[in-house]
Amino acid sequence: MPPTPHPLATLSQILHNPSCSDGLPKEIESDLRTAACMLIQEAGIMLDLPQSTIATAQVLLHRFYYVSSMLSFGITDISITSLYLSSKLCETPIRLRDLINAYMFLLARIKHLSGGVSGKGKEKENMKIWEGFSFEPPGFHDEVFWDWKDIIVSSEMQILKRLGFNMQVDLPYSHVINYCRILDLVFEKDVAQSCWSILNDALLTPLYVYHPPHILACASILLTTRLLRIPLPDNWWVLFDANHEDIWQCCGTIANLWREWGMEPHTGLIHGERRDRRKVEDKWRRTWVLLESKKAVRRWVEENDQKA
């Protein structure tokens, strides 16, 4: 058992993604990763967990779905369990009950939103979206807690088992601060914040299991300085053992994420076709349906096969 400080997915794991081998299209697979990580992020913020705990959970989830299929393990189950496991690993313990409540709130909200929203005009829409939404946490002794607890306990074991008990996660946040210092960027307005946010966004993609942390740190600096139009010396990334191809590819993945989900920063620098609102909405809706359980994913794959 050699020491594995920060395991990355192997090329064959990336090429033969278990969910895709089970018939899930690549695009949907990555949408579901994103949605599952969004759940972790939101629940983590609600529970006041530090970003390192949230990030660890998201990385564990990405790793998990390179050794397991979304048709065998429900995405919401793994998402809630990763967060629980990482809260233990990062010594930021949370109460299981609080975690379950947070997830039930998020799931109730998804249910409400996927019920369909109609409306015209931005302001009207904003008012209407939440109309009729309410969430009542279940009673203290409600069965639902026990059901969730069983799911979490058994999924936890699955995650540990399937990751071979390798739980070390090395995050790029501290690298970014050091690199910014070396590049004399710490006093540039918004740079550190933007790098930080980009690294957070990158967690919604599988980048953290493709590249070691120093590459991700460089990518966040590259993208930030491009967006803010800050010049840097040529080939600065050589200083940090990064190569242009890797970091540029990371930037592309992140820009793509923004475009696809309609969340690009308002810098006007990311060009490309004006996103089709309808398309984005459909994407959200489809993802929400599949997020629910492995059964939903299986059903979708079956229907998709029949169509084809």
């Binding site: 629980y84 496991l85 233990k88 690993l89 313990p93 299981l96 607890k149 979490i152 306990v153 936890e156 074991m157 540990l160 739980m167």
Partner: peptide, 9 residues
């Protein structure tokens, strides 16, 4: 009680 014990982890 609540999944795997912290000490074991």
């Amino acid at each position: 009680k609540d999944g795997l014990d912290m000490t074991a982890l």
